[in-house]
Write a protein that binds this DNA or RNA. Structure first.
Lengths: 199, 199
DNA sequence: ATGTCTTTTGATAGTTACTGTCAAATTTTA
DNA sequence: TAAAATTTGACAGTAACTATCAAAAGACAT
């Protein structure tokens, strides 16, 4: 039998996914109520009814409970679904915007709250920016494939770097202006990059 | 008497600066010999002949002993020294390249080693990227002043974000290719940004 | 169902980065 | 030299992690 699609796959897997979600939910709530630093892993574990050791088995670090997400695969799919006549930059822009457009109102609200927390708390921001370097590498690979270049080609790396940098600036601004529309901010910023950074 | 200009300012200040430099030197050596994580603050303190509590009085975190630098003021000076007919992007490019050109061979070698360590060790990379957001804000302010816009103008923010992103991509590449010339890498990357991110 | 095998869990005992406090030592100032 | 201000080190504590290991729970063959 294939190891991946066994009809929601055994009780074990289901329980793990459920536990993970429960822990993340309680963590987010506690962070909101007490603040990130004032919340201990012990408190999160207690609220989620697991032991602290189990917490660290699910999440290697306290930060991870908030930062873990799966946007990268979504981005890949959206990027590869873009029409081939678009330039790489237009394709990235379309992919990011459509990925956001596909989110539910609930997901958007959670994302906003997460972004606010992450950009506000130095440890979280640092870890988050760090993980963006992986996304940068990913974008370089996507762009390389689309243009027939190598991922470590200078133009490709610069392209990926600029896009990640623009994302960072948008995330920071959005954290301070939560009433703005993230998709619009990102779309406008990437279009400015496309237009040649006219200043 | 004014508390700030007292002619090289007392024995105390000089001793502090000296202690700081000694600690940083020993820390860098120990990190090189033992690895970052395997080196404890206690070991650094012992090598520098201070107490651990004193270490934390000088550096709020262990990361800080490696990350603290003063490139921002250098960048500001270099930027404002750029001829006024240059575009903001050309000015930033000129400023960064000339700031590197002004460094001694020793400084360059130290910078290379630091960059390698920082980009290699996840904690250090995270903290370093985090501090780059300050530089991003700084660039936004410089660009805003030069163009008569506000620092939180969308075009200005996007400009600063793209530049920081390009810097990140160059730093990552440089860490894996230490024999390259950092100034050249950065110059080429920023010129690609200037040319409109042609892919 | 039963027993066996494998995976997951929780308890326990560390290590280490970092914080707070206070008295002793050192530098500055009068 | 005496007094005031600052720096230092010792001590005690917190909390994020790590390693280990026995017990509990799920998977599986018979």
């Amino acid at each position: 039998m294939s190891p991946d699609d066994k009809r929601t796959m055994g009780l074990r897997e289901r329980k793990k996914a459920k536990t993970m979600a429960v822990v993340q939910m309680h963590a987010l709530r506690l962070f909101r109520e007490l603040g990130y630093n004032a919340t201990t892993v012990e408190q999160i574990a207690e609220a989620a009814e697991i032991s602290p050791s189990t917490f660290f088995r699910y999440f290697p670090t306290k930060e991870d409970v908030l930062l873990r997400d799966n946007y990268d695969p979504v981005l890949v799919d959206a990027f590869e679904a873009q029409p081939s006549h678009l330039s790489p930059l237009q394709a990235v822009r379309g992919a990011m915007v459509s990925a956001i457009a596909d989110m539910s109102a609930d997901e958007l609200a959670t994302m906003r709250e997460r972004n606010e927390l992450i950009m506000t708390v130095p440890e979280l921001r640092a870890a988050s920016l760090n993980s963006l370097t992986q996304t940068m590498q990913l974008i370089a690979e996507l762009a390389a494939k689309r243009t027939g270049r190598e991922p470590d080609d200078a133009a490709v790396r610069t392209f990926a770097g600029a896009i990640i940098g623009v994302n960072i600036s948008v995330m920071l601004y959005y954290a301070e202006h939560p009433d703005a529309d993230f998709a619009v901010l990102l779309d406008e910023a990437l279009s400015k990059l496309e237009a040649g950074l006219l200043l």
